[in-house]
Structures are given as structure tokens and as C-alpha cells.
Amino acid sequence: MSSVHARRRPDLPSKQRRSPSRSQRWQLTERTLGPDDARPPGLDLRNSLAAELPGLLRYARSVVADDSLAEDLVQQTLLRALERLATFRGESSLATWLHRILYRTAVDHFRRVREIPIDNFATLVDRQWHDHEYTVDAAVVVSRAETTTALRDALLRLPVIYRTAVVLHDMEGMTVPAVAGIQGVSLAAAKQRVRRGRMMMVSALAQGSERHAARAGVPLNCWDARSMISDYLDNSLTSPDRQLVEKHVANCPTCPALYAGIVASTRGVSRLRDADSVVPEAIACRLRQAYAPSAETQ
């Protein structure tokens, strides 16, 4: 649901902001592009970067579930590219160089959220494809492969190294050597990642039909519903959106437990505030004396 992805958390007050806002990062990008920057001869960096933005954003949106996170990853990529501009010698295309930075930026993110080295799905698929008895319903896989939502859902189930290899090779049309250069692996390793990634896609699409059946009649996808729960608890959703969330939670096989967990943790944190807490009178008196206007200022 596009309206969900369009929501943004208001900027924190300047003293609380931990990192530059999106607009501040773009301003920093503009300031960094000075006339004396080192760059390969004949490279119009400002126009060249602008031309690569759609491809970078498309790539980022294909490997993460959240559009706002994809935008953040692209902007981090641009800042890192500017910081390392002197290292770009034109030995590869600007697109390949930027995709390599974006790949590392995405991997850093997934490492922080501990998606790496979770590889259970890859191990399961390997075991299935080695089994001579294993197969899938071709009609189901072909049908779901024609649906954007099903494809994205399947892609996001792949471990990030296989997910990005498939996106770079099969969506962006890059060669295996280019994929190897972006991921910083050997040609053989890149070939294996593309091959295994494609196998995982088939298995994910096949399994997705079972999950889709379990969610038949459930409005919203799980991510959209989960991203709206906080606003639901804060009574900041429109009436139609509240009804969609309620219907989703009532019928989804996986989201009710997450919803109950958010409710419980939110209530728990609210109880940490002790309504009976008071400032000791001796401390209150010293504070009043310290901040009382002196006779000279009256």
C-alpha cells in the first residue's frame, strides 16, 4: 500500500538527531561536489550521478522491503562514493562502481540487523534440489512469477548474497563478471550465487502459494499491516485503515502474536513511569534557591 510507505517519522529536535536528515544529506552531497574534486578526466560527476540514481534506487528497492530504507541506502551510497571519489579510476563503469558501494552498504545494514549469516533457507533449498524426488507445481510457480507482489515476496526470502546476485544479473542485466566485481567474489562464486539464487526463487515461489492460501481473504500484506500497528495504537490512522489493520490481524496466521507483543511491550514501558515519584523537598528547595531571581536582577 503506497500510502504506508509514504509515511515518514517527523525529524527529531536538532539536539536529539543522531544522524543527518534526508534533506541534510542531500545538502551535504551538493556541498561535496566542488570544482576541485579529483575525478577521471571528462567525467561530469553531477550529471553522471543523477543518471545512475534510478538504477540504484530500483536495485535497493528489490533487496529491502522498506522503500524508505532503500532511499536511505542509496543516499548513504552517494555519500560514500563522494568520500572515495579519488579512488575511482574508470577501470569499471560508474554504474558498476556505485552498485559495488551500494552492495557493501546493504550488507553492512543486514549485518547490523543480523540477517547475516542466517542461511537456513539456502541449506533447505540445497537439500531439496539434491533430492531426486523433489519437484514443484510448475503452473503455480509460473503463475506467481508473473505477479510483482509474489516475486518481491520470494526475493526477500533469499539470503542477501543470493538475492542481490539474482537482482543484479536477472533484473539489471549485468554479466556474471560484473556481479563478481560488485560482490567482491571470484567468477566461480558469482556463478554459483546466481545459480543457487535462481533455485531458491523457484522454491520460494512454490512455497509462497501455500502461504498465500493461508492468507486468502486477508487484506494488506504483512509488512504493510505491521508498519501500521504503531499508528493504530496511537489512534492516528483513518477509519478505513484501522478497519484494514483489524481485519488483517483477525485473519492472518502470523501477525496476531506480533501485534500482541507490541501491545504488551508498549504497556510495559508506560508502566515504568512511577506516577507517585516526587522530588525530595531538600532537593526541590535547593533548585528553587538556585534558579530564584536575585535581588540585583529584580
Rank of each mutant, 00 (worst) to 15 (best):
A154N: 11
L155Q: 12
L156A: 06
L156S: 03
L156Q: 14
R157D: 07
R157F: 01
L158N: 08
Y162D: 12
R163M: 05
T164S: 15
V166T: 11
V166C: 10
V166A: 11
V166M: 10
V167E: 05
E172F: 05
T175M: 00
P177F: 02
P177H: 00
I182Q: 04
Q183A: 06
Q183G: 05
V185C: 14
V185P: 00
S186N: 02
L187G: 09
R193D: 12
R195F: 13
R196I: 04
R196D: 15
M199G: 01
S203N: 05
A206G: 01
G208T: 09
R211Q: 06
R215Q: 10
G217V: 06
L220H: 01
C222A: 14
W223E: 06
R226P: 00
R226A: 15
S227Q: 11
D231F: 12
Y232R: 02
L237G: 08
L237H: 06
S239A: 13
D241H: 09
R242K: 09
R242Y: 03
L244M: 06
E246H: 03
K247E: 14
H248W: 10
N251T: 08
N251M: 13
P256D: 08
P256A: 10
A257H: 07
Y259Q: 02
A260Y: 03
I262C: 01
I262Y: 02
S265K: 12
G268T: 07
S270Q: 14
L272F: 11
D274H: 11
A275I: 08
V278C: 07
V279W: 07
V279E: 13
V279N: 05
P280Q: 07
I283R: 12
